[in-house]
Design a protein around this nucleic acid. Sequence first.
DNA 1: TAAAATGTTCTCTT
DNA 2: AAAGAGAACATTTT
Length: 271
Amino acid sequence: MPELPEVETLRKYLEQTSLYQKITGFTAVDPERQLTKPLDEFREALLGRTMEQTTRIGKHLLVKLDNGLVLSLHFGMTGNLHYYRIPEDAPRFERAVFYFDSGFRLAFADSRKFGRLGLWESETVYLKAKKLGPDALEISEETLKGKLQNRNVAIKTALLDQQILAGIGNWLVDEILFQARINPEKPAASLSEKEFKQLHKANVAVLRTSVEKEAIYRELPATYLIHAREWDESPHAGKDMHKFCPRCRKAILKTVVGGRATYLCPECQVL
DNA sequence: TAAAATGTTCTCTT
DNA sequence: AAAGAGAACATTTT
């Protein structure tokens, strides 16, 4: 689920469903693991309050309450939101629930339990605590280059480092590098001037397009590498069709970089 | 059925 | 201090 485009989609979802309603209850299945503070503190801060405003930084969703406190939601690998009214509509793997005076509820569902909810004095405090770099949709080419040119790790690993820039995950990083025609294993510091430029351009293009499509990846352009990932069964692709490079038709290679599954075109992304 | 999975964080070493 | 490597976390899905 949650790389930058998914979280941006969830942000809009929360904004369209849950703002300006009084919170009348809050539950968490496993407070110790899921919450940054004890459940009583969450309830004390939340009950009687309303959600007023949302922000997203990288893969983090922040919700400002009418008492000035900031609620943080991080979705881990499988986190999701679901707004509903009747209990039968509760999502599978519901892990935490906000109850509103309207009778509706906002559920935080999360099968793999890596998601976290936090409560903070301000957005600034949160960003500092998480040491997040600039949002991947906001970062300038100069800043990106400045942060990458002294790193010796593989460019893929660097782009996944949320302290360098926040929001890119393991699916989109492969897409960005494919579009920029850069091999994922190339040391970040060894990128040429031209490659930094291509990288920044691809980053913006891929993220913007994915946000536009509301993170429904099967709707991304046919020129995208992402359709080669095994899970994709886009009908227009015709099953195995996209196991080949949409640009040069060479077979897409699956490897491991920085411990993560990595897809690339060996022809278009030479080391 | 064993393996792999969108993410972060901690430990250990350099 | 800081970078990098690798394991750990928990569970579902294929």
